[in-house]
Each structure stands twice: as C-alpha cells, then as structure tokens.
Amino acid sequence: SRRKRARARHKPCELRELEVSVSELGLGYESDETVLFRYCSGTCEAAVRSYDLSLKSMRSRRKIRKEQIRVAYDDDVSFLDAYNRYYTVNELSAKECGCV
C-alpha cells in the first residue's frame, strides 16, 4: 500500500469534484442543500523550473514541493438556508486547474 500511496502522489494536477451539503463547507451556513464542490488536486512535479530547484537547494534541509495549483473559479452558488434566507457564495468551486 505504500507503493500505492507513492503512485497516487504522482497523479498530476487535475479538477475533481465532490457532492457536499452546504453545512459541510464550514462557512457557517446551515443548509441541507447539496452543492457540487470542484477542486484541484494532484502534483506539480512536471512544472518544476530552475527557480524551484534552486529554492529547494537553498532550503535543502526541508523538502518542499511547490504544489500551488488552481486556476479559474466557477460561477456563483446560491442556496436557501435553514432559516429561509437566500445566500450567494462566489468563487466557491474551481473551474480549471493548473500549476502556478
């Protein structure tokens, strides 16, 4: 299973999605509505530049992996909460992913 985990780590950056209830987002909203939460996940090993190698060398004691990924956000998400109030959350989900 260790090898499996190692392989999983090599999955490149990509868009994944999860259906979650609004309450699970942890933003404080109380609502049973479900939203599609799209997020970016994966490694950015193929996007490493000299800058990253140099930075890594300079901080050689600590292993850094530059994993800042995420490119564009999806449209606004609106829902009704448990107290019959409407809310709109913008920039909740990712729409496109990439290594930055």
Binding site: L27, G28, Y29, R85, Y87, N90, E91
Partner: peptide, 21 residues
C-alpha cells in the same frame, strides 16, 4: 468590496451585517 467566508451583507450591500467566527 469582497467578503470571503460565511457572511450576510449589510444595508445597501455595505459592510458585514453578520459573519461566521
């Protein structure tokens, strides 16, 4: 401007009327 995280906007979309945490 933008308010990020759970919130409700104030009158005329000014300020944070209610917030989370």
């Amino acid at each position: 401007g933008n308010i990020i995280g759970g919130h409700g906007k104030g009158i005329g979309n000014l300020g944070i009327k209610s917030g989370h945490g």
